[in-house]
Amino acid sequence: MAGGSRVVTKRLSVVASNVAAHISEVSRDAWERILAEIPQLRGDEIILNILKAGVEENISTMLHVFENDMPLENVEGPASALDYARRLAQRNVPISALIRAYRIGHCRYLQWCLDELHRQEPDAEEAMGHPLHERRTDLEVALLAVQYLGSPLLLPAVP
Rank of each mutant, 00 (worst) to 15 (best):
E140W: 10
I47T: 15
I38N: 08
G3C: 14
A124R: 04
Q40M: 05
L98R: 05
E125L: 07
V75Y: 02
L117G: 04
L63A: 01
R136P: 00
Q147C: 12
T9E: 10
H106L: 09
E25C: 01
Y148V: 01
M1N: 12
S151W: 04
Y109M: 13
R119A: 07
P78F: 09
D44V: 06
E25A: 04
A16H: 09
E140R: 13
V158D: 03
L114T: 07
M1Q: 11
Y84A: 05
T9R: 10
R108C: 08
N92L: 14
L63V: 00
V55H: 00
G150D: 15
L153A: 15
S5Q: 08
I59D: 02
R33I: 00
H130W: 06
R33M: 05
R119F: 02
L88A: 06
L12D: 13
I104K: 08
G129K: 05
I38S: 09
K10W: 15
V55K: 00
R91H: 10
A81V: 09
P71R: 06
G54S: 12
G77T: 08
N74D: 15
A21I: 05
P71S: 03
L35S: 05
E56N: 02
L155H: 00
R136K: 14
D69Y: 00
G54L: 05
S5C: 11
K52L: 06
A127W: 01
P159D: 12
H106V: 11
L149H: 12
L117P: 03
E116T: 15
T61R: 04
Q40A: 12
E134L: 15
E57R: 01
H64M: 02
Q120G: 04
L110A: 13
P39K: 11
P39E: 05
V8H: 10
A20I: 07
S80F: 03
L110C: 12
A81C: 09
L144Q: 12
H133R: 14
S13P: 15
E37T: 09
T137Q: 14
S60C: 02
H118G: 03
N92K: 14
L41C: 06
F66V: 03
L153K: 08
S151L: 08
A101P: 03
L72I: 04
S60R: 05
R108P: 04
K52A: 11
G105I: 11
Y148D: 03
G105R: 10
H22V: 04
P94Y: 07
N68A: 02
A101G: 03
I34W: 03
P94K: 08
R108Y: 11
V14P: 12
L98P: 03
R135H: 10
N58F: 00
Y84N: 02
A142N: 08
